[in-house]
Write a protein that binds this DNA or RNA. Structure first.
Length: 418
DNA sequence: CGAGTTTGACCAGCGC
DNA sequence: GCGCTGGTCAAACTCG
């Protein structure tokens, strides 16, 4: 069954990608989301109660040829409502979303890049560090911490997820701003295999025997790295983020026709992982989840060149999973399936960020590791309330419910068929 | 030949 | 205990 699904997927995907190749050149509107996902589960099970729900919020900017502009979910959601805070106090200047040409180096993404650059050279950067921005203040317990937070909610408690319902279907030209918390997401998180310390992880990766693995897993359980997810509206699965990745696995995802791919950073001693998965609800959305923090600022290989700060797209001839630049892991669109695409299309994306917080509304920020691998500290927006959410696999962890909502009915029907 | 991908097998955690 | 699912391993394979 799994296999069939996967085959179907491959088939579909193949077709999709071929189609995409044709279409890509003429893509005028692409929508990218960057999600910031914080997982509070860096906790050992021993010390944690169990699980927690999470809140997340994401911003999506849409861009067309000439504009980067913030739109609101279904055009009917106010950003302020998402953050429960005036836009002016969002973790980033609202103007970053406004009217930036897609090729404008001063776009939001570029700012991020630049900031990262600075960050890489100085931990004390006062530039675009997200934690430097005022946080939404609707919760009394907003704070950032390097410390792992205990889970507050049993995995079995399908409780809150907060979401802003987007009644407008996602389209290439539409964007959404949403917040959601989703508990099944936590389920997923809780289920996920332990993520060791970067060093540990690396060592383990290179270690050998299965008995060893077993023993290790048993003993060291649950020290999980914060995760960080980016939603990208793109036909490309594997988005170039400037780092080099080696694929080490692929799995069919429950309730999704699309497989999830697992990658590890190829840099020695860097245990960062990422998962790439396409939304089953909106196949145009690719979710990339990063886990861990790069121990190296830039790709340390001949393929990666440093120094494309303002125009990180120039190496569009790069092969495989990465090339140059660093920064926020996102729309370079240079990956395997796509490095032949005209690079100006790569900028036709918008971003959103989603962060996770614990069930009590506490925002969790791994502090110095808050933007795993990128040196960012991201603040997050808060959310409202929730509704139960079905299992969407990893995507459910991160994908805002409203993004899913527009297809949920369809999906339900499909599932009924099964 | 090295680097990266594919893919079936294995394992752990969880719910029933 | 069993089945399901997510995550990882590692041999075989592909590619440049």
């Amino acid at each position: 069954m799994e296999k069939k699904i996967e085959e179907d997927h491959h088939h579909h995907h193949h077709h999709h990608q071929e189609q995409q190749k044709e279409e890509f050149k003429s893509i005028k509107n692409t929508e990218t989301k960057i999600e910031h996902q914080e997982l509070q589960q860096q906790i050992s099970q021993a010390s944690s109660s169990s699980s927690s729900s999470s809140h997340m919020a994401n911003l999506v900017t849409s861009s067309d040829h000439h504009h980067h502009q913030l739109e609101l979910a279904g055009n009917n959601i106010n950003l302020s409502s998402i953050f429960d805070t005036p836009i002016s106090s969002l973790p980033f200047p609202y103007s970053y979303f406004e009217d930036h040409s897609t090729n404008n180096p001063n776009s939001f993404l570029d700012l991020l890049r630049q900031d990262h650059h600075q960050f890489a050279s100085s931990s004390n950067s006062s530039s675009f560090s997200f934690d430097a921005f005022p946080l939404p203040n609707n919760n009394n317990n907003l704070f950032f911490t390097d410390l792992p937070l205990p889970h507050h909610q049993p995995a079995t408690t399908k409780a809150e997820s907060s979401e802003v319902v987007n009644t407008t279907p996602t389209s290439p030209n539409s964007t959404s701003v949403s917040s959601s918390s989703n508990e099944a997401a936590n389920d997923n998180i809780n289920k996920e295999a332990t993520v060791k310390d970067q060093e540990e992880g690396d060592q383990q990766d290179q270690k050998g025997t299965k008995p060893q693995l077993k023993a290790k897993k048993k003993n060291q359980k649950k020290a999980r790295e914060a995760r960080f997810a980016f939603l990208t509206k793109s036909d490309i699965d594997n988005l170039d983020d400037g780092y080099r990745w080696r694929k080490y696995g692929q799995k069919a995802v429950k309730n999704s026709p699309y497989p999830r791919s697992y990658y590890r950073c190829t840099t020695v001693a860097c245990g960062v992982k990422k998962r790439v998965e396409r939304s089953s609800d909106d196949p145009s959305i690719v979710m990339t989840t990063y886990e861990g923090q790069h121990s190296h600022p830039f790709p340390m290989t001949p393929r990666g060149h440093i120094g494309m700060l303002t125009s990180p797209i120039l190496d569009h001839g790069a092969t495989t999973a990465s090339s140059s630049s660093f920064t926020i892991p996102q729309p370079r669109y240079l990956l395997t399936h796509q490095h032949h695409q005209p690079y100006n299309s790569m900028y036709n994306n918008s971003l959103s960020m989603i962060n996770r917080s614990s069930s009590d509304g506490t925002f969790v920020n791994p502090g110095s590791t808050s933007f795993p691998g990128y040196g960012y500290d991201m603040s997050q927006a808060s959310t409202s309330t929730s509704s139960s959410i079905r299992d969407h696999g990893l995507l459910q962890d991160i994908l805002p419910s409203q993004i899913r909502s527009d297809t949920i009915n369809t999906q339900t029907k499909e599932e009924d068929k099964k």
